[in-house]
Write a protein that binds this DNA or RNA. Structure first.
Lengths: 186, 186
DNA sequence: GGAATACGCTACTGACGGTAGCGTATTCCG
DNA sequence: CGGAATACGCTACCGTCAGTAGCGTATTCC
């Protein structure tokens, strides 16, 4: 996802991934996803725009890697299947609730609708790891886990995208209840 | 939503709403939502771009009105609550499956993430009528229907947006099952 | 025939994602 | 120490797209 640096001698890359990610989320939080242009992200990070493009091939790739950095691995240390699924849903809902993260999340998915390359990045880099982790943890077939991801992610993103605000906790509870009921039956 | 024509004398508007809607859906189907620029829609409709802007204030407004035209009123003639909800879900899933419509639907929602004005149009013109119809038909509180809309629309759009293809019928069945179970309990 | 409006056309603006090219800084290796 | 190799900053630029301005022409009502 990040453009790899050629091996050999030469000046090493500065350590500014974290700086750029932070600037990106901050800019999204303050100006919204549309307002978080590459020029503004670069300015907020105190870095030249061309430097960002030397590392990430597109704005979408940058945002996806920032999200990966912010999300980290899915929590899978729970006892049973119900607890695992429930904690995973609350985990993703909580992440989306963090300032800037939800906006970036909804924004990058919305860009992906019109951008097959970004869709590919999103599917392989972001969704696949969580899909595999959930599949292993739940012992459900891939098809079923994909459906669950569509339901959970779709619902949370739709609320976020339409209202600009993350879903209230009581609705997250309802979502968990609903999905758990699906898991129990059948 | 459509810019109203001033009253009085003068040349009346040509009857080309249907032509423009059809050209819009066709262009989305052939070139995707991102490829369906205003220039291309106008060319496909055989109409000047400025003529479109005289009627609709923005591309989003045009697409929303096209969707309203394509969707029509929600079917509410069903017997019981379960049948009503089930048929409503299958109805929206079917509409999204129509060529061009799903792409336009996903595209306009994705644009709305970064465009508050479009979000407002979408909420009041598109979502509100269906919300009210479902609320009346189901006898459920607004809050609950809003949640159901987020779940159904979010899930269908997420699948559409991520894969470019509408949801398979078996998954629509699963969605209906899941939502019906929510309606029954509580 | 004149007021009033619609349509088509060409040209334009402003914003944005992304790129080119150059000078400078930093590191490794011989 | 010197040169190869790479990174960074900067300025300028391209192409695309939503949306606008302005003008000439067509169509309707009175």
């Amino acid at each position: 996802m990040q453009i790899s640096s050629p091996a050999g001698a030469g000046r090493p890359r500065s350590d500014l991934n974290a700086t750029v990610f932070a600037a990106m989320f901050r800019t999204v939080r303050e100006l919204g996803y549309a307002g978080a242009t590459m020029d503004r992200i670069a300015a907020a990070a105190g870095v030249a725009k061309t430097t960002i493009y030397r590392r990430w091939p597109s704005r979408g790739a940058l945002v996806v890697e920032g999200l990966l950095d912010a999300f980290g691995p899915v929590p899978i240390e729970s006892a049973g299947r119900a607890e695992l699924l429930s904690s995973a849903i609350r985990w993703i809902a909580g992440k989306i609730g963090e300032p800037g993260v939800g906006g970036a999340f909804a924004g990058v998915f919305s860009d992906a609708v019109s951008d097959p390359a970004l869709r590919e990045i999103l599917a392989t880099q972001f969704q696949a790891p969580y899909l595999r982790a959930l599949q292993a943890g739940l012992g459900e077939p891939e098809h079923r886990v994909l459906f669950l991801i569509d339901v959970v992610t779709g619902t949370l993103l739709h609320r976020m995208g339409m209202t600009g605000e993350p879903m209230a906790e009581s609705d997250v509870d309802a979502l968990v209840e609903m999905v758990l009921r699906v898991l129990r039956v059948d």
